[in-house]
Simulated assay, not measured.
Amino acid sequence: MTKAPFQTPSSTPQNAPQFTVIRNSSSLMRIYAVLLRHLYLMRASWPRILEMMYWPSIQMVLWGFITQFLMTNSDYIAQASGVLISAVLLWDILFRGQLGFSLSFLEELWSRNIGNLAVSPLRPVEFLISLMMMSMIRTIIGIVPATFLAVLFYEVSIYDLGLPLVLFFSNLLIMGWTIGLLVCALILRVGLGAESMAWLTIFLIAPISAIYYPVSILPDWLQTLAWCLPTAPVFEGMRAILFGEGFQLSLYLHSLGLNLIYFTLGMGIFLWSYRVARKRGLLLQIGE
């Protein structure tokens, strides 16, 4: 009597589907594990959730106001073709100033150098002054070539604003530093999960900063918020000069006064957050 040839379990046809199911199940579990990890990370970091909803909402509000203004003021661009380009350049001063400050601070966190600075003789105020100077350098490097390109391509020179340009530049730069201080203070409190706020926060005030349209186009309740920001008086002052109304001292003083208040507040919040993070040893844990 001949015996049937020996067959291993893996070679039997009836066992093949079973191993396929197991292999597919393991693959799904690994995919699910990675997905679950990111879902937990998202749930623990509200800035990440905010970022997903942020850009579509801001773009819709900002361009909605621009469209509404242009529909009711069709001769706006014909009267002052350089207003929009000048507004873009001034807005970039604010954006670059804030981003230059925040990125200089983030680079200390990414390189894990913040702990070394904390135990060095460097004082927090001295650290902030160096960040502000770096922000100014970054802003000048970024904005000056753009101003010459505006002259080359569009024959629009922001330097036609004259001496008020220096006042506008300083006010927008101080406002950028204020936002940078608040962003850095938030990162010290919640960690690098909030680093995206360095790019998001500045655009939160864009719709009510009257960059491309006057404050009067906003709803009444938003006009009140707009005049509570240092940015709206700057852009209104810029338009007044380009429309031949001259330099509005009241708008400049309005912006300067708000800047001094907000900058002092931002400085205090950052120093408080820095002191708490240093006392609790959080500076060595940021980035882990």
Rank of each mutant, 00 (worst) to 15 (best):
M1Q: 01
T8N: 06
Q14E: 14
V21E: 02
I31V: 10
V34T: 10
R37Y: 15
L39E: 12
S45Q: 04
I49Y: 12
M60N: 10
F65I: 08
Q68Y: 07
M71A: 14
S74N: 08
Y76E: 10
I77L: 11
V83W: 06
L89G: 08
W110C: 00
I114L: 03
V125N: 13
V125K: 13
F127V: 01
I129W: 04
M132R: 05
V144G: 12
T147I: 12
V151I: 09
V151L: 12
V151G: 07
L161A: 06
L161R: 02
L165V: 11
L167S: 07
N171T: 12
L172E: 13
I174F: 06
W177R: 07
L182I: 05
L186E: 06
L188Q: 05
M197W: 08
W199E: 15
F203S: 12
A206S: 15
S209Y: 13
S209C: 12
I217Y: 11
I217C: 05
D220S: 14
D220C: 00
L229V: 03
P233E: 08
F235Q: 00
L242M: 10
F243A: 15
G244E: 09
G246H: 00
H254W: 09
L258F: 00
F263L: 11
T264Q: 06
L265F: 13
G266C: 05
L271F: 10
L271R: 00
S273V: 10
R278P: 05
K279P: 00
K279Q: 14
L283P: 03
L284Q: 12
